[in-house]
Design a protein around this nucleic acid. Structure first.
Lengths: 194, 194
DNA sequence: CCAAACAGACTAATCGGTCTGTTTAAAATA
DNA sequence: TATTTTAAACAGACCGATTAGTCTGTTTGG
C-alpha cells in the first residue's frame, strides 16, 4: 500500500462505490479495478471486505462530522437558521451531481443496520456524531428566535436530520431533488417560531 | 402453483424476506426453502427473481394503501390529527416485533432506487400512493385546526412520511424505536397550529 | 538482504437461472 | 362413468458466472 497505493484515495473510492451501489452490490473485483489494485494488494491492506467497509465508514464519519462543524460554525452576520437551511438545501441540491449517493450513514443503516452488528454500531454512532455537530447551530437558531426554543435542541436536530434522510432516500428513486427540497423547506417553515 | 402453493402466501413470505434482509442479500435458495418451493416451482410461477420482487412490491403497495385508507378514514369523535399520530406511532412501535423490517417502499428505494429503473418506478409510485392516502386525513386535521392550514396538505403529508422513513431507517441500526417515537412526536408538535 | 507490498491464478461456495424429467389435475373422448 | 390425453405444476440435478478470500510466488524499497 505504501508503494503504489494511497490508502486515503482507495478508501475514498470504496466509499463512493458503496454509496452509489450499496455494499452487497459492489464486488471485490469492482473495488480492485476501480482502485487499480490487485487482490494481493487489497488483502495486504485490508483484512476483509467488511473490514474495508468499516474503514470507509470511519473515514466518512470523520470527514462528514468535520465538514458539518465547519459549515455550521458560528458566522458573523449570518443567522444560524439560514446556515442550517443552506446546509440541508445544498446537500439535497447536489445529489444529481453525485449520482444520488445520498449519505453513507443512511445508506448503510438501511442496507445492513438490521443484519450486521458492526455496521449497526458504527452507523448509530455516526448518526449521533452528526446530531452533535448540528445541535449547536440549532441552539443558536433558537436563541436568535428563528427556531422554536420550547424543545430540546438535540431533538430538533434529530428531527431535521431524520427528515433529511427520508428525503435523500426518496430522491434516489425519483432521480430528482425538487420534491425533497420542498419537503425540507416546509419543515424549516414549520420549525420557525410563530 | 395451483396445486401445492398459494401465490398470495409465497409473495407474502418473499416480501418479509426482502424487507428484513434486503433484495440482494436474499438468495433464491432461501426464498425456495422459506416458501417450501423448489426451483422448478418457483420459475414456473415467476419469470425471474427481479420479477418476483416487483410482484411483492405490487402486493405491498396495494395492501399498504388499503390499510392506510382504512386506518385514516374519517372516524366520528376522533380528531384527524390523532388518527395521523396514532398511525405513525403504531408503525414505529411495532418495529421491534417485526424484526425492524420497516417499510418495503423505503427499503427498496434505498437499496435499488438508484440502480434499477423498474424498482425506482414502482417505489416512486408507491410513495405517491401513500401520500395520496395520507393527504385527506391531513386536510381534515387542517380543517379541524390541529395542523397549520397555511400549507398544501399533500406537501404536509410528504413531510410527515419523509420523516417517518428517516426514523424507520435509523431504528434498524439502533435496534430500538424510542428515539424515533420522540422524533415523530416532535414533528407533530411543530406542525400543530400555534 | 529482508520484510512488506504486490501480482494474479486459484478455490470453495454461492449466485440466478435452465433443463430434463415426472407428477398431477382437469379436459376430452368413448 | 371410465379412460385417455394434454398441458401445467413441480422436482431437483445441473450450468456458467460470480462471490469473497487464499496462496505461491515475485517485486520493491529500505
Amino acid at each position: 500500500m505504501n508503494v503504489k497505493h494511497d490508502k486515503e484515495k482507495v478508501v475514498q473510492i470504496g466509499l463512493n462505490l458503496f454509496c452509489s451501489k450499496g455494499y452487497t452490490n459492489v464486488g471485490l473485483d469492482e473495488i480492485c479495478s476501480a482502485t487499480g489494485m490487485t487482490k494481493g494488494a487489497f488483502y495486504n491492506a485490508f483484512e476483509s471486505k467488511e473490514n474495508f467497509l468499516l474503514e470507509t465508514l470511519a473515514r466518512f464519519d470523520k470527514s462528514n462530522t468535520e465538514r458539518i462543524n465547519t459549515v455550521l460554525a458560528p458566522k458573523k452576520g449570518v443567522k444560524a437558521v439560514d446556515q442550517l437551511f443552506e446546509f440541508y438545501s445544498y446537500m439535497i441540491k447536489v445529489q444529481p451531481k453525485v449520482n444520488f449517493m445520498g449519505c453513507m450513514v443512511n445508506n448503510m443503516m438501511s442496507e445492513l443496520g438490521a443484519i450486521n452488528e458492526n455496521v449497526a454500531h458504527v452507523t448509530s454512532k455516526g448518526f449521533e456524531n452528526i446530531i452533535n455537530a448540528v445541535e449547536p447551530c440549532v441552539q443558536r437558531a433558537q436563541h436568535e428566535g428563528d427556531i422554536n426554543p420550547d424543545y430540546d435542541s438535540k431533538e430538533m436536530a434529530t428531527l431535521l436530520h431524520s427528515t433529511f434522510y427520508g428525503v435523500l432516500t426518496r430522491a434516489k428513486s425519483l432521480g430528482s431533488n425538487k420534491k425533497g427540497l420542498k419537503t425540507m423547506e416546509l419543515l424549516f417553515t414549520n420549525l420557525k417560531t410563530k
